[in-house]
């Protein structure tokens, strides 16, 4: 059983056919990069996995999205439970207007956990996993907004990790960051994959090469090519993929 699988996914925004029969699998503890020009459907595809598209009007979805073999669009699925299992990190860091500590503890508290010791342990371990602990351990009660952009993004990753998901979705997580912060996020992604299955949308081809095990190239709502990243970047089978990764279009 694959960690994540989509079968014949079609998605329409009103009359616009945004995803056209997508079949894709992601193995556990791997990083899969979704690449393609703007409007190709990669972010729409990413948002399927925590049902973020449900929030948009006039969306119609057919096909199956399986996480751990379960159809997450099934009637019995509670979206809140799904989002505990499938965490998400967005393009721009979006910490809550709270302290660093409370940002990470937030997910636990809204899930009804009040045990102080438990929360503290989880906050520390999440910050450590997000490679942020050493930088913030002496100012946990300071506002999250006092952190740099790169630190804020790692705080958002820690916040996502605190509820112990098994899947992490990342939508261009480093595109708003400077090169050093980007490098830290990329190293973090590489480290986190031993515990998580990660799907990342990126416009940065080099980033896809550096961080991912598998790459999916989307174009106009179609999955053009999916393969091991090293094959996509050394010998893509499809001419459109080659033209995109070599910068000839898109």
């Amino acid at each position: 059983m694959h960690k994540i699988e989509t079968k014949e996914i079609n998605l329409h925004y009103g009359n616009f056919h945004a995803l056209k029969g997508i079949n894709l699998v992601a193995k556990e503890n791997t990083v899969t990069a979704l690449i393609g020009p703007s409007g190709c459907g990669k972010s729409t595809y990413l948002r399927l996995f925590n049902r973020m598209n449900d929030l948009i009007d006039n969306v119609e979805i057919s096909g199956q999205v399986l996480v751990d073999g379960e159809d997450i669009y099934g009637r019995k699925v509670q979206v809140d439970d799904l989002r505990k299992k499938v965490g998400m990190v967005f393009q721009k860091p979006n910490p809550f207007p709270k302290s660093i500590y409370e940002n990470v503890a937030y997910g636990l508290r809204v899930n009804g956990i009040n045990d102080k010791k438990f929360i503290e342990e989880r906050v520390v371990s999440s910050l450590e996993q997000a490679a942020l602990w050493e930088e913030v351990k002496d100012k946990l009660n300071k506002s999250a907004f006092e952190l740099s952009g790169g630190q804020q993004q790692r705080l958002c990753i820690a916040r996502a990790l605190a509820v112990q998901p098994s899947v992490l979705l990342m939508d261009e997580p480093a595109s708003a960051l400077d090169p050093l912060s980007t490098s830290k996020i990329e190293e973090l992604i590489h480290t986190l994959k031993k515990d998580y299955t990660i799907i990342i949308v990126t416009h940065n081809m080099q980033q896809a090469g550096r961080v991912s095990d598998y790459t999916a190239f989307f174009y106009m709502g179609t999955l053009v090519e999916f393969n091991e990243t090293k094959i996509i970047f050394t010998n893509p089978k499809n001419i459109q993929t080659q033209n995109y990764i070599t910068g000839r279009f898109g």
């Binding site: 080099q206 090469g209 550096r210 990243t229 090293k230 970047f233 050394t234």
Partner: peptide
Amino acid sequence: SENIFALFS
């Protein structure tokens, strides 16, 4: 070596 060129620039 080819993979390192392609993936890590």
